[in-house]
Design a protein around this nucleic acid. Structure first.
Lengths: 254, 254
DNA sequence: CAGCATTTGTGGTATAGTCCAAATATCGTT
DNA sequence: AACGATATTTGGACTATACCACAAATGCTG
């Protein structure tokens, strides 16, 4: 059994007005870094932590939320707090699939189709997909996992007219491959936008986390060989799961 | 059907189980969206807000911190809460300078050199800069502002032997231009990594914000025409200031 | 009227609880 | 051993305060 609290004697030496919740953070950050706490390990309950450190549960939560924002730990809704696994490197500019990328880094990727449907494009979608408002599109919601942990939800929008019968295909594979093999659509280029934000109600629920936890929002609009936008992909990433890397090659004329 | 867009007034008013801090958030989110609250407007004090909404200051802070994570508002250390200005689009893969990029979007960019020194490379830096541990390097700390608001701190590491007398030049301009004009160093390519995290003590102080506020960490290692890493750039961005965009052109062989 | 000291207001930290709903563990029955 | 009802634990939300440190406003003084 591990001892979580700091011995009282040591407290004197660094008793320099460091807030409790920072000490708490430092304590666990050190344990995580040292490997005393392994990835996916569950922390004790908030009440137990509060007692061990002789602080209030409110203060414990303040520290935990801070550590979550740092990417040290994560939570599963109403289940508790866990140590974050290492981030995966992900290059959104290559066409390399999520699955391939994750596998190459020695992790296990999973894909779960949450829903698929044929609907009429909303105003926002039609604008960004470059089609008439009300045009028919496919919307596919998928959940992606790494080593069993849900790390991203994505909502894929595809013009229906370009891909008849798309939803009859297995949808837990790479969309790039599917569009290429079945419909001869080649991804020529893509415009990617990213910004840190928090998880909204629905994506949070899909990820099994509390709404309001930090996340990385990534949108990708994909252009085919005819210079037409054919796919719009909206992704919410668990912010502690990803390390985005892109290569900038030479000077692009602008 | 999953809803990905931000809930506004469409939230079900008949659902009485919406937490106070979410209602508070929705109220101000609507005001900000409607333009009733303009960018950089200061919110009332936490105590005043608590009284106005008949909730505790603790709950008010919970809501404010949530809104900060969303990027709706930001705070200046011990000064209060303010409405976030629009994000600027920033493409880290182009060599376009910060100043140029900001100016093109009709905003005013500023650069402040915080410190400049010639030191010996630490183990970590030498590893990432590709030089011997203890080799001499320049470290330049700069603060970047948009419309007067500090949005990013950067720490630039440059091999000293390649750029004699670098620190004697004006350092509030584009490093790319300076290296090119004075030392004939051309940025051939760069490797960029990004991840959401929080501001640590020092960068937070430089930005004038509370340590622990969300941020985007961006590192850039720049390779010259001789395929040698000559610059290592570490950046902490205010997470609500930036909308990162990159273009993925065609398929890269891998 | 400039410059310095003091007060006041504000955000940051922290306590000590309560209530609730969901998740987990327990236990008895088939 | 499997299952379902029940009790317990846990995280999420919230109240009501308190104290401190710092920033801005205020007042005092030379």
């Amino acid at each position: 059994m591990l001892h979580w609290s700091i011995p009282d004697d040591t407290r004197k030496s660094w008793d320099r007005k460091i807030p409790y919740y920072i000490r708490f953070r430092d304590h666990f950050a050190a344990m995580i870094k040292a490997g005393t706490l392994l990835p996916n390990a569950k922390l004790p309950s908030e009440r137990a932590l509060a007692e061990d450190f002789s602080i209030t549960r409110v203060t414990v939560r303040q520290a935990l939320i801070r550590m979550e924002a740092e990417g040290l730990i994560f939570r599963e809704k109403r289940r508790g707090w866990f140590v974050s696994p290492p981030r995966i490197l992900y290059d959104p500019t290559t066409n390399a699939s999520f699955t391939k990328s994750v596998t190459e880094q020695g992790r296990v990727a999973g894909t779960l189709v949450l829903s698929k449907q044929r609907v009429m494009a909303s105003a926002w979608v039609s604008e960004n997909l470059g089609c008439a408002p009300g045009a028919e599109i496919f919307i596919i919601n998928r959940l992606r996992t790494i080593d069993g942990r849900a790390v991203l939800v994505e909502q894929i929008h595809i013009k229906a007219e370009r891909c008849p019968g798309l939803l009859e295909n297995p949808l837990d594979q790479s969309m790039t491959d599917l569009l290429s093999e079945k419909y001869g659509i080649v991804e020529r280029r893509a415009q990617i936008n990213m910004r840190p934000t928090v998880l909204l109600e629905d994506p949070a629920h899909a990820l099994g986390v509390t709404a309001g936890t930090p996340s990385l929002y990534l949108s990708r609009s994909i252009v085919d060989q005819y210079n037409e936008v054919i796919e719009l992909d909206l992704e919410f990433w668990r912010h502690d799961a990803i390390d985005i890397c892109v290569a900038a090659t030479g000077k692009t004329a602008d």
